[in-house]
């Protein structure tokens, strides 16, 4: 029998979202999931059986989705609002500014098919600016789970203690299981996944590419590089203690399936650039262009975001 963690990690993240909502519905009658015609694929039938009134459909209307979600949240409901990542962030940025930012409505926005998960649909469906948009909103919590164990844990935590938040879901393989032993991610805390005494290079990863960073670390170790891998599930608030702990190291490499500008790597660079003893920073991410449609794997590889790309970019920066 595989563990519950391994079972979760073997599923599509959207299935995990639905399972988690059903789990929450069984113990929290305040749960509300406000969808914009993206409910069927989220496997919400079980939740709807347990708590029919939790399901709110607004149609293909994300502005209305955020407004309705905010009102429900401010009236005491525990509200999640999932949609395609690009539509629930950049498309409704002003609603998010007003409703979640200024009004501090405790809505959990959930961005689906983020990064280049939907790369086959082309640039319109790739969410490569969503982190940049969300992390500039004051008071927002921005989270990018690396696997389904973490996703489920974070959704449960945010539903129990709602706050203005954005959970970014992207998935490129259904066997990634970094948290197979069921570690529960604490929001706001980075996690050292692998370390070496006197580590000289830190791979700082967020989201599903954390798996690639771990594979890259294996390659780098073979090359004699002393590597630490740190997962930042939370991008905002940024765990600056984990960054302070890099003092004296040679290089920090950030890895994300988001545009090179404005996302996780930028966030790390902003912090480290203001400290005297920081390592140099290499930001790896998607290029600053709108990309042609392709498979996610090819799109990531072209951007140098597979294990080989991460390892070779790191070695090049080290001059090896």
């Amino acid at each position: 029998m595989p563990s519950e963690e391994l079972r979760l990690c073997g599923l599509d993240a959207k299935q995990v979202f639905g399972e988690t909502m059903a789990l929450i519905a069984g113990r929290d009658e305040l749960l509300s999931v406000v969808v914009s015609d993206y409910g069927r694929r989220l496997n919400l039938d079980e939740m709807r059986e347990i708590l029919p009134q939790a399901f709110v459909q607004v149609g293909i209307a994300e502005q209305s989705q955020v407004e309705v979600a905010a009102a429900l949240a401010n009236e005491g409901f525990h509200v999640l609002a999932p949609s395609y990542a690009t539509f629930i962030t950049s498309r409704v940025l002003d609603q998010v500014r007003v409703m979640l930012g200024m009004m501090e409505s405790p809505v959990v926005l959930v961005g689906l098919s983020a990064g280049c998960e939907s790369a086959s649909l082309g640039a319109s469906h790739m969410a490569l600016e969503d982190l940049a948009c969300m992390r500039t909103i004051p008071g927002m919590t921005v989270v990018c789970p690396a696997d389904n164990v973490e996703l489920s844990s974070i959704l449960q935590e945010l539903a129990a203690n709602p706050r203005p938040a954005y959970v970014r879901i992207s998935q490129y393989e259904t066997d990634a299981c970094i948290h197979a032993r069921g570690q529960h991610t604490e929001i706001g805390k980075a996690e050292v996944l692998r370390d070496t005494p006197d580590a000289e290079v830190a791979l700082l990863a967020t989201g599903p590419l954390t798996s690639e960073a771990l594979r890259a670390a294996t390659k780098l170790t073979r090359e004699g590089v002393r590597v630490r891998v740190v997962e930042f599930a939370t991008i905002k608030p940024l765990d600056t203690n984990a960054l302070d702990a890099l003092a004296g190291m040679r290089l920090a490499v950030t890895v994300e399936d988001h545009c090179i500008n404005g996302g996780f790597g930028s966030s790390v660079a902003e912090y480290l650039s203001e400290r005297d003893d920081s390592p140099r920073v290499l930001r790896l991410g998607m290029p600053d262009v709108y990309l042609a449609a392709d498979t996610p794997a090819k799109t990531l590889a072209r951007a140098g975001l597979d294990a080989n790309g991460i390892a070779s970019a790191t070695l090049a920066r080290l001059g090896r």
Binding site: V56, Q63, S64, V66, E67, V68, A69, A70, A71, L72, E75, G76, F77, Q95, V98, M99
Partner: peptide
């Protein structure tokens, strides 16, 4: 343009 959606949400609540 945001008030009506918010008000509708309050009515639903």
């Amino acid at each position: 343009g945001m008030g009506l959606g918010y008000a509708a949400g309050l009515a639903l609540a």
